[in-house]
Amino acid sequence: MSADAEPRRLRADAERSTARILAAAEELLAVDPAATLERIADAAGLARATVHRRFSSRKALLEALTCLLNERYLHGLEQARVATAPPVAALYRLTELLFELKVDSRAIMELTADPATKMTPMSPEVTAGLELLFRRLREAGEITATDTAWCCALYLAVVHEAARLPADSPALGIAAGDVGARADLTYRTVLAALGGDRPHLELRDETSS
């Protein structure tokens, strides 16, 4: 075995263990938000000492889950092609993806939310991607608001509130149970609030194809 093969193997083992811990934590915390590191270790099928080596405290585990969620946000920005797609299409697709993410990652979002904003803190990379999208919307004449930080804050607030609407809310229309209904509401609300005055056609079929 080469001199550096053993460290590489140990790093790979550690990465696999970490992934198993995070997957188990996400699944277990969705059922019991108060689950301990010991219970998470059992769910991951790992020794409790292994979990404590990776995460010294519950706070450290939640910080890792926050990073995981930010990786998913970044993946959503890439899928929406915020840098290259027509900006209104990118906005709509990103909005769909965020609501899908809220369904799939609800437990992480609730546990890692900032008490003041009720949202998971976003990494600088995620924030930069969102700001790029709103700059492009401004440059394309789709909105008139110029403060990208304000645009992002308003957008995320509308996403958060739309996600909290009950399924039978009149605001969601006849497709209330559909992720697309929440995306439609958010998309139109945000464009109107940020000074968009162009008529925007239904984008759901285009962006999901």
Rank of each mutant, 00 (worst) to 15 (best):
M1D: 11
P7N: 14
P7D: 11
R9K: 09
R11K: 06
A14L: 09
A19Y: 09
A19K: 09
I21T: 00
L22Y: 09
A25N: 02
V31Y: 11
D32F: 05
D32K: 03
P33G: 14
A35I: 02
T36C: 06
T36M: 09
E38Y: 00
A47F: 08
A49W: 04
A49V: 01
H52S: 03
R54Y: 01
S56T: 10
R58C: 01
R58D: 05
A60W: 12
L65S: 05
T66I: 11
C67R: 10
L68G: 07
L68T: 06
N70L: 05
R72E: 02
G76I: 13
A80F: 11
R81I: 04
R81Q: 15
R81C: 11
A83C: 02
P87L: 06
A90G: 01
L91S: 05
Y92N: 04
L94I: 09
T95K: 05
E96K: 08
F99M: 14
L101G: 15
S105P: 02
R106P: 00
I108C: 10
L111C: 02
L111K: 03
T117H: 04
K118T: 07
K118P: 05
T120K: 05
M122G: 07
S123G: 11
V126Q: 15
T127D: 08
G129T: 12
G129V: 08
L130D: 11
L130N: 11
E131N: 03
L133A: 10
F134M: 03
R135W: 13
R138N: 15
A140F: 13
G141K: 08
I143S: 12
I143W: 12
I143M: 13
A145Q: 10
D147A: 06
T148G: 04
A149I: 00
W150Y: 09
A153D: 07
E161P: 01
E161W: 04
E161R: 04
E161L: 04
A162L: 08
L165A: 08
A175T: 08
D178T: 05
G180A: 15
A181T: 06
A183Y: 15
R188V: 00
V190D: 00
A192V: 07
A193S: 07
L194E: 11
L194K: 06
D197W: 14
R204T: 09
D205I: 14
T207E: 14
S208D: 14
